[in-house]
Amino acid sequence: MLELASVSRAFGGLRVIDKVDFRLEPGEIVGILGPNGAGKTTLFNMIAGVLPPSGGRIVFENRDVTAMKAWDRCRLGIGRTYQIPKPFTHMSTFENVMVAAIHGGRSSMAQAKAEAGAILARTGLARHALTPAGQLALLDTKQLELAKALAVKPRLLLLDEIAGGLTEAECDVLLGTIADVYKSGVTIVWIEHVIHALRRLVTRLAVLSGGGFIAVGAPQEVLADQRVKEAYLGT
């Protein structure tokens, strides 16, 4: 589904991502762990097309997308959420989702309205439909990020720390939504610090540290790995 071949990214002299190789199969839900500054978001930005890689190739569904613009990748089926949400603050919550359905999801205006209504219900935002997105509380803003990403009808969904800062109950609700999305056939890559949340859903876990993956595999094995403990858990 997605293949990173020797992908690198440097900011000035600092190599944040150094020749990373990664393969993602359809139907997976992969969790990405890593200490702060390990380059997780940089990796997402390169997959989504926000940042051009300094080197390497990114292939999505057998198409080289390395030089493709973010909006074209989105229309190909790559949806993403931002760690720091990017709501369209002066548009209503409904319009936020509608515009994603129109542009990323390629729906007609009427279709997009129906889809936006359904997605708002699914993400628990229906009661905020007419609230300007800038006035939403944190949880709702995170739900809106997810709602917008779903509206583009992704086949690959990139989630960037979507569970951070949520209470236990809120986190459960979010996990339920993500599990539903996964069951509907969307492949997911999920950056998260909340390990217990990741463990409940992911099929594979990958740990990013020092510019590359230091461990990739089944969640139990990866979490038991000595290098992972040193790099991430600090023991």
């Binding site: 989504a48 097309g49 926000v50 613009k69 973010a70 909006w71 074209d72 989105c74 229309r75 993403r80 931002y82 990017k86 709501p87 369209f88 603050t89 002066h90 548009m91 319009e95 936020n96 509608m98 515009v99 994603a100 129109i102 542009h103 990323g104 999801g105 390629r106 205006m109 997105a133 917008k148 990403a149 509206a151 583009v152």
Partner: peptide, 25 residues
């Protein structure tokens, strides 16, 4: 219009608009 809702999204957050498929260029 379709383009207009994309423009309005750009007004509020350009990177966010690109991420949901708005052709900024």
């Amino acid at each position: 219009s379709r383009i207009g809702v994309g423009l309005t999204a750009m007004r509020d957050n350009e990177e966010g608009a690109a991420a949901i498929g708005v052709n900024i260029t």
